[in-house]
Amino acid sequence: MTSRFEQLIAANEKIEPRDEMPDEYRKTMIRQIAQHAHSEVIGQQPEGNWITRAPSLRRKAILIAKVQDEAGHGLYLYSAAETLGISRDELNELLHSGKQKYSSIFNYPTLSWADIGAIGWLVDGAAITNQVMLTRTSYGPYSRAMIRICKEESFHQRQGYEIMMTLCDGTEEQKAMAQDALDRWWWPSIMMFGPPDADSTHTEQSMAWGIKLETNDQLRQKFIDMTVPQTEFLGLKIPDPDLSWNEERGHYDFGDIDWDEFWTVVKGNGPCNRERIAHKRKAWDDGAWVREAALAHAAKQHARQKEVA
């Protein structure tokens, strides 16, 4: 006899918080949603790094709004994770202790204004490729969160590409800045889809449960095929000598990805891993007295209301 869970999955229907689900499914969902939420939260840092130096008031406003959206996505995703029976405080602790991860892409530094363009264009572009698939994922609250998030992300991606276009139409220095950003962000961006299918520990089970609908390599190929013409339009060069159109496959071939670099960053030894977590922990620890004050005030208010009543 098949369980109701298996029936729902087979019928392509959503699993909802009150439905029974295998422990492993619950754990996988918590891990994945939490990792996504943490990525949005940590993602505030590399982009926030340019809020105070944005080159025009218009760009400053767009950037602040974007970083604000990311905090909002984090909040929204934490709520989705909470429906699986884990609290936000627990999730915070798991992030701070390094037991849960966030996207490795945010462990690279933003060193010029063009990085803000490259992140919007490439990083958000890669994220959307992955997230469009997740709007159809089997867990209902996550799927619904992704529908909303995808709309804002595609807006961010257009804004990022527009920054790149403006730089490429600009002075020689601006164009060099854009190329340098592409050089640094290209490989980390295509690593965002995760290890090759052959080495991906979670892919098979996640596909069976309808959590993932396409594999890492399929999504990576889709992203590269979409991005190459956009790069040509900008007049920039992708830093991969092996990149070429394969008529037979109907896809771009590309060079070997440095998976040693990928694993080095995942394991905590990328350029900014330590700063990112230290920043997050400091903000949290420095804010402890504020959160305590809010709780103390609410308790006093409650007591006063009881007295009156």
Partner: peptide, 24 residues
């Protein structure tokens, strides 16, 4: 704007960004 990502709670990061945007 200097404070975005430095607030005591995620909700306050959102609020401070909002104030910064309004004044901008």
């Amino acid at each position: 704007g200097e404070l975005v990502s430095w607030m005591p709670e995620l909700e306050e990061d959102i609020a401070i960004a909002n104030l910064s945007l309004d004044h901008l």
